[in-house]
């Protein structure tokens, strides 16, 4: 299968080729090919069980946690085949993930954000201070927690924890950020704040945004892929999905809410 090269001529940041994922006999993803460009927000929409989360897991090599998960095909990150990478820890540090439910690790707010830099070897307290403040600011959380950095991260409210999770993902200075339905446990106001954060972040990292909310994809994503039953139905510039300029009837139905 020939992948279409990006119009800008830039090499894609992430390229997925003929990816098939099985859980035991069940095929969660079949022959998916797509590419994510530098500094774009790439949306993935689709109903449950479409294979969206499985794709993210395969990209970050989280398939290693699940022995029943079988991955075939290629995923090229910066041109390197991640399926063949031996140091998966190094790879994961380049690709931050935010899970659907916020995970405030049972450490202080400060330690939550400082964890990744510490793992990478940063020991100096003032360096860490700078990183922590920068990441919390970028995640729009600094003002709310600056006076209680030593409080337990797991005691923050749901929306704050989700922004803490984003700050933590940013602290490892990733080149790519993957968000898996981040707004599921977050109130609308906080969702809007995080969305603003993402628009800013786009300047620095490439973002994959998996979302259940079609309108969220419309607000944020530059290009969007529609997944259905383990297949990537099509990928298009996001606005085309909503103006009906897409080819597939199923995509149109889903976007307009006439599905199922």
């Amino acid at each position: 299968m020939v992948t279409v090269t990006a119009p800008q001529g830039a090499t894609p940041h992430l390229e997925v080729r003929d990816l098939t994922i099985h859980y035991k006999q069940f095929a969660a993803l079949e022959n998916v090919s797509l590419e994510v460009r530098q500094n774009e927000i790439f949306g993935i929409i689709g109903p449950a069980n479409a294979g969206k989360t499985s794709l993210l897991k395969a990209i970050n090599r989280m398939d290693l946690f699940d022995s029943s998960m079988r991955v075939e095909g290629q995923i090229l990150f910066n041109g390197i085949n991640t399926r063949k990478v031996r140091n998966v820890y190094g790879l994961r540090r380049q690709i931050g993930v935010v899970f659907p439910l916020p995970v405030g690790l049972p450490l202080s707010v400060y330690d939550n954000v400082a964890l990744a830099p510490r793992l990478a070897g940063t020991k100096n307290r003032s360096d860490l201070d700078v990183i922590v403040e920068r990441c919390l600011r970028r995640a729009a959380l600094w003002d709310e927690v600056k006076d209680r950095l030593m409080a337990l991260g797991s005691l923050l409210s749901g929306g704050q924890q989700q922004r803490l999770t984003i700050a933590r993902a940013l602290s490892q200075e990733p080149q790519m950020l993957m968000l898996d339905e981040f707004s599921i446990a977050v109130d609308p106001v906080t969702t809007m704040r995080i969305e603003d954060v993402l628009k800013e972040l786009k300047k620095e990292v490439s973002i994959i945004l998996v979302t259940n909310l079609v309108q969220q994809a419309r607000r944020l994503a530059d290009r969007t892929a529609f997944f259905l039953d383990g297949k990537c139905i099509e990928t298009a510039v996001t606005e085309d999905l909503f103006t009906g300029a897409v080819q597939d009837q199923r995509t149109r139905d889903y976007v307009e809410g006439r599905f199922g």
């Binding site: 970050n60 989280m62 946690f65 820890y89 190094g90 790879l91 994961r92 540090r93 931050g96 993930v97 899970f99 439910l101 995970v103 690790l105 049972p106 964890l115 990744a116 793992l119 990478a120 999770t165 933590r168 993902a169 490892q172």
Partner: peptide, 16 residues
């Protein structure tokens, strides 16, 4: 388990 996944997803080794 979500603590484990979160830590490993951000590139921590098993021991870390």
């Amino acid at each position: 388990d979500r603590y484990r996944e979160a830590a490993e997803a951000m590139g921590a080794t098993r021991w870390q």
